[in-house]
Design a protein around this nucleic acid. Structure first.
Length: 559
RNA sequence: UGGGGAGUCGUCUAAUGGCAGGACGGCAGACUCUGGAUCUGCUUGUAGGGGUUCGAAUCCUCUCUCCCCAGCCA
């Protein structure tokens, strides 16, 4: 049993539980804006919020932060619900929308006006910006700042009724134009947007901003711990201010560092650009770090959750090695994926002493890690395919596979010996390898000789042609966000992030595999059936390679 | 030259006054009908300078570096 270590948020919660701060309740929420697809960074937040609720016997709400009709779409709501559910979390009947609170929010705004804590400003966006001051100089008060409560009430009501044009007026909180914290320099609470909203339609033409909406939504829902990312640290005084001024139930905002992953980007803006400029095939392109992309690639929810567990939660910015993600993936897939044999880059191999028309059905273990997975029969005959990579005319030291005069085992079958080979004189490519087999060496036979290597293979007469898409990391540098390395991150896209292989040779048991099914292609990696598959053209996505010490050695030799 | 945060092995993260630990990566070995899996071992770290203390990653102090904020985005 590993010693449990608590992150700083859990420590705060346990302290609150101990002191009875929220009456022993723990209630969190995951509050996405429906303006894009969820990615692995969101998964961290989802696992944190739902995980903490579960750990402390509390609840976690799913709430759409939909206060900006210009950017939000139903399509994103749909995908977010699907993705959170796929990750394995349940919000019961607590699916909420900030737009559900528009009426109450409006009432709260009116109350602040009545208290003299909010005012309607006629300054233009540009003027407001200039009045705001800079990071080092204080701002100036708007000439409209001291309107009477009555006038503010009337103007705000007229804003709601649509009597003003977009940008003509805003409602602002009256706080402190000289504050060192720019968020406190009379932040905008309501702006006029004459667009129809995906849920409220044309009921409203004024929409509350995030800063005003978020604390109140948390409060309305009885959230205890409102977990968000570091960039909102500066907003916490404002979060507190609204709740205090309105004398509402007051949740506690706690900030943590968002996830960064090496060799990828996780900003919505950049992901959107990848999709819109066609650098990837869509939000669910298997190279995308989106949940939808990872799902299509063959990731499991379990692997993603394990990853989120292991990266921890802290307040320091960091970039997690993608190797940790791959480790979690392999660890999970190793336990569950059925093994099959597929030859990606085939070369013909003839067993000269094997009868011309004989076929044997050899028993193959489906998953050595899982005895319950059973066995299957794999056809074996005189003519087979093996990988081009598994044969070398002049093998270097440490190459254990097939070469002239060498012996290897064919997995689940016999030991063979290479007697001869043919090659295309023009391309230098090996066309046929001739071997003899040892009939006494069949798998499972009692007396076994040892050979250095075991190869996967497919019977030529029974093989099924399939398409395989080999995916690699989307970017060729560890940190595509680094402007010094990538002035434009698009230029750091890995040109070899996708390689499509047609006419790969698969063992016949794969026939009828359906989209989403995951397999280990023996010695190669984990693959999953892509939805692009048709009856006669199965398409596999490479989820992740197996760890490959030989590939690593080759790389070192070549350096 | 305002305000808010953060600095611990290559990476992520524990240890809050008492032996700097774990995971990933890397390296070496064992085992293996997957060069997979598994197992074993090894390596490397408290940003810097002062101070308090028997004892400091932890407390005090000065310095350095990095991140966030000037949307009517979230």
């Amino acid at each position: 049993m590993e010693k449990e270590t608590k992150n700083f948020i859990e420590k705060i919660i346990e302290e609150d539980l101990r002191t009875g701060k929220y009456g022993g309740r723990v209630h969190t929420r995951f509050p996405p804006e429906p303006n894009g697809y969820l990615h692995i960074g969101h998964a961290k937040s989802i696992c944190l919020n739902f995980g903490i609720a579960e750990k402390y016997g509390g609840l976690c709400n799913l709430r759409f932060d939909d206060t900006n009709p210009l950017k939000e779409e139903e399509e994103y709501v749909r995908s977010i619900i699907e993705d959170v559910r796929w990750l394995g979390f349940d919000w019961g009947d607590r699916l909420y929308y900030a737009s559900d609170y528009f009426d109450r929010l409006y009432e709260c705004a009116v109350e602040l006006i009545k208290k003299g804590k909010a005012y309607v400003d006629d300054l233009s966006a540009e003027e407001i910006r200039r009045y705001r001051g800079t990071l080092t100089e204080p701002g100036r008060e708007s000439p409209y700042r001291n309107r009477s409560v009555e006038e503010n009430l009337e103007l705000f009501e007229r804003m709601r009724r649509g009597e003003f044009a977009e940008g003509e007026k805003v409602l602002r909180a009256k706080i402190d134009m000289a504050s060192g914290n720019i968020n406190m320099r009379d932040p905008v609470m309501y702006r006029i947007i004459k667009a129809s909203h995906h849920r409220t339609g044309d009921k409203w033409c004024i929409y509350p901003t995030y800063d005003f909406t978020h604390p109140l939504s948390d409060s309305f829902e009885g959230i205890t711990h409102s977990l968000c990312t570091l960039e909102f640290e500066d907003h916490r005084p404002l979060y507190d201010w609204f709740l205090d001024e309105l004398e509402l139930y007051h949740p506690q905002q706690i900030e943590f560092a968002r996830l960064n992953l090496s060799y990828t980007v996780l900003s919505k803006r950049k992901l959107t650009r990848l999709v819109e400029e066609g650098h990837v095939s869509g939000w669910d392109d298997p190279r995308m770090p989106t949940i939808a992309g990872m799902r299509r690639r063959g990731y499991t929810p379990e692997a993603i959750r394990e990853f989120c567990d292991r990266i921890g939660v802290a307040k320091a910015n960091s970039i997690v090695d993608f190797e940790l993600l791959e480790h979690c993936l392999r660890e999970d897939l190793n336990k569950r994926a059925q093994r099959v044999m597929v030859v990606l880059d085939p070369v013909r191999l003839v067993i000269t002493n094997y009868p011309e028309d004989k076929v044997e059905y050899l028993e193959a273990v489906n998953n050595p890690e899982d005895p319950m997975a059973g066995t299957r029969k794999v056809p074996f005959c005189r003519e087979l395919y093996i990988e081009q990579d598994d044969f070398m005319e002049e093998p270097p030291r440490k190459f254990y596979r097939l070469a002239p005069g060498r012996e290897v085992r064919l997995k689940h079958a016999y030991i063979i010996r290479c007697e001869d080979y043919e090659k295309d004189t023009e391309t230098g490519r090996i066309t046929t390898i001739y071997c003899t087999y040892d009939p006494e060496s069949r798998s499972g036979a009692t007396q076994q000789r040892k050979v250095k290597a075991t190869l996967h293979w497919v019977s030529a007469g029974h093989a099924m042609d399939v398409e395989v898409r080999l995916y690699d990391r989307l970017f060729s540098v560890p940190n595509p966000d680094d402007k010094r390395q990538c002035p434009d991150f698009i230029d750091c896209i890995n040109p070899e992030s996708l390689k499509i292989l047609k006419e790969c040779k698969a063992e016949p048991s794969l026939k009828g595999a359906s989209p989403g099914e995951r397999f280990q292609f023996l010695r190669l990696g984990y693959f999953c059936v892509d939805p692009d598959s048709t009856e006669d053209n199965l398409v596999f996505n490479r989820t992740v390679t197996l760890k490959d010490t030989w590939a690593k050695m080759k790389e070192k030799f070549s350096q």
